[in-house]
Design a protein around this nucleic acid. Structure first.
Lengths: 228, 228
DNA sequence: TCAACCATTATTGTTTACAATATCAAGCCC
DNA sequence: GGGCTTGATATTGTAAACAATAATGGTTGA
């Protein structure tokens, strides 16, 4: 059975989800044996997953020392942010196609879930849904390749925000998503693009690259609930 | 010694180079044992390389059947082309920084090599240098993340062109690179961006997605000279 | 008391052999 | 004769044992 790829995808997704939800802090060690136990897998599969994640810059492999959750440098962080800005802002300014009725509906549905998560003070759900909103937008106005590229950038942004976020800041204004959808419904892409630029700059303004955070974080209880 | 990563990078680079130079046709089978012999390596390393290349969409792993050079579908091809166009055209329109004197010098050097390759009718060198020109441009006006993203897209474009190129067409007008550099030297980014759009559209117009090409290609003699 | 050194332990990296699967060819039935 | 089944072969996939390396802790000597 070719279920091995599926199982590895499951493990990789669980790790990515943990990164996305800010549970796995940058710098955390990822011991192979321990991960194998947590996911009821074996070292070989874990090893392949870590190799793939290292290619996505989510994990850093240090030869002889093992795998760690990546700690993007300030420069890398700036580059990731700027790249994402370029893609999303430019796509909105000149989308490959108009936003369809179904597309608008998909986005509206996500936005409503965001509102629910906001009301429930579910920060984790809000982070996830915010990403989904952006990715769906890109898929609707752009294509799957851009979506996959941006998906990786969003994942890296999670690490960046975890490392460099200022205290007492409330990032990710979900009200922007509402306004964005309204502009897109009116096919005012120029204004939507400008709003997206402000939206992303808003996120960036919450970051402070001067403080070198001591994100030595630990693991097993945090990952334990992921195994199912 | 941590030389294993280096060796795997060497093998991956050789395979990518072969794809770039259109020597490895899409659909070609990549048997692990044979690759191990060609590169004087072992199956385990080859296996890791193929896994990584599959993540870059250069190689497709079919469970139980092995690794093949990817055959991008017409839809994937269109998406890759459009994504690259978005990134390069947008970056030129609003670069992160002005083109520096050193940057212009780097580009000029590549362009001169292109002219030499053109004079020598060295098609392979021309393909490689054209890619280098675009990547250097992105690094100078943008950043390393965008460069790496575009590098992967260019690699995928090689597969696409191999599969869908019309007969008797001369793609990649190197004269465009000359004009581009001139516009950038004058800091006329709007015009440079427009030229880049035409340049990339020119490449796309050489493609024909209707013909399903029988690119069942073979391997060992083609890869043999790569082993050194 | 602290620092350097050495032995121990744990973790990673590699190789090997083995199991599973797909491919191919011949034979057989229709 | 064509297509299907069946066995042989080759290739991929997996597991386990082994080797190498880095982290750990304790000892020794100043």
């Amino acid at each position: 059975m070719g279920s091995s790829a599926k199982e590895e995808a499951r493990i990789a997704d669980a790790l990515c989800k943990a990164v996305l939800e800010r549970k796995l802090a940058p710098g955390s060690k990822l011991p192979e044996e321990e991960l194998a136990q947590i996911f009821r897998s074996n070292r070989a599969k874990i090893r392949r997953v870590l190799l793939l994640l290292s290619r996505s810059h989510i994990v850093t492999l240090e030869p002889g020392r093992g795998a760690f959750v990546s700690r993007p440098s300030p420069q890398e962080a700036r580059d990731v942010l700027a790249s994402r800005r370029l893609i999303e802002v430019s796509l909105l300014a000149r989308p490959y196609r108009q936003l369809s009725a179904q597309g608008a509906e998909r986005l509206r549905r996500i936005m409503m879930q965001e509102a629910q998560a906001h009301a429930a003070h579910d920060a984790i759900a809000m982070i996830y849904l915010s990403g989904q909103f952006h990715l769906t937008l890109i898929e609707e106005l752009g294509n799957k390749v851009l979506k996959s590229i941006t998906g990786e950038l969003i994942l890296r942004m999670s690490l960046i925000i975890t490392m460099y976020e200022r205290q007492n800041t409330t990032c990710c204004l979900s009200s922007d998503h509402h306004d964005l959808l309204e502009l897109l419904g009116a096919h005012d892409y120029a204004e939507a693009s400008a709003l997206m630029a402000r939206h992303l700059e808003g996120i960036e303004s919450c970051l402070d690259f001067h403080r070198e955070p001591a994100t030595t974080t630990i693991l097993s209880q945090i990952l334990q609930p992921l195994k199912d």
